[in-house]
Amino acid sequence: MDRRSPHTVDDVMTSTVVAVGMDAQFKEIVTAMKQWHVTAVPVLEGEGHVVGVVSEADLLTKEELRDEEPTMIGQKERLADYAKAGAVTARDLMSSPAVTVPAVATLPQAARLMAQHRVKRLPVVDEQAVLKGIVSRSDLLKVFLRPDADLAAEVRREVVDRFFPVSRAGILVVVEKGCVTLTGSVRDATLIPVAERLTRAVEGVVDVRCDLIAPMAVDVASRQ
């Protein structure tokens, strides 16, 4: 994984993906899900283009409606469900169009997409909409496994060294369990909130305590 923020979906996704074709049979899909311990599979067409997703929910409609006596009103209200209950191939079982995420998307973008569509995983595609991998909620949490030393190094390189080139020697960066503490004196007080915001933006940071001070600004205020 690249040690510089922001990370992209490509950094954390799972590259080995179980997928099925449009003509995959019901039992084939169930078998694949059980064998690979997944709850959904992308459906591919042509040269790996993602056209839909079959999930456990799509498959369970067949069991849910198996012994239900349909009424005219019930069938009309749940037309799509009854169609899936009678489906036997991925073409008719899948939810389409598929909700996918570009490999170059940032992790917050992927997280927002999951929340918006209420899904636990997303197929990852390239610029031609060809399947590259799959990203799950647990994949997005991988950044919080970054070692404290890596986080400290990135904060110092991307925040302290860039914004406080004169004061950097006197700034201490301490990271414990993902929580960053910044202490020391700086010349420009207006950069302190910027430093805190950018430190929070580092992938894997859990929290930030910013104890930076600008003595010159304090002296000027005390004289007024």
Rank of each mutant, 00 (worst) to 15 (best):
H117V: 13
D219C: 11
T16W: 07
V173G: 00
V205Q: 06
V218C: 02
P165R: 14
H49R: 14
A214P: 00
V205Y: 10
T106A: 10
V41N: 00
P6E: 08
V99E: 10
L140Q: 11
V41G: 03
F164H: 09
T181C: 07
T181I: 03
M13P: 04
Q35H: 04
G46K: 08
S95P: 09
V194M: 01
S185M: 11
V101M: 15
G74C: 12
R197Y: 07
V186G: 04
G184T: 02
A149D: 08
D67W: 12
M13F: 01
T100S: 05
L122F: 01
D92S: 06
R66C: 02
D58L: 01
V101A: 06
I134L: 12
A19K: 07
V220R: 15
E77H: 03
M72C: 03
I134T: 12
E28D: 15
A40R: 12
P215T: 04
Y82E: 11
V208H: 03
K120P: 03
V119D: 03
A195V: 03
S222Y: 02
T106P: 03
Y82H: 13
R112K: 15
S136I: 05
D11H: 13
E77F: 13
A111P: 01
S5A: 15
Q109A: 13
R200I: 07
P193W: 04
T183D: 09
R200K: 14
P108S: 08
V206F: 07
V205G: 08
G52L: 02
L140N: 11
D161Y: 01
K142A: 15
A57G: 14
I171C: 10
I213C: 09
A110T: 06
D207Q: 10
M33A: 05
L140W: 07
A87H: 08
K34F: 13
H7S: 11
A32K: 14
I29P: 00
M22Q: 04
V41F: 05
D161W: 04
L65T: 09
V50C: 02
S185I: 05
V51T: 13
L212V: 11
Q116K: 15
K84I: 05
V99K: 14
R112L: 14
T61D: 15
A90G: 01
D2G: 08
D11A: 13
V88W: 13
I73V: 11
R223E: 03
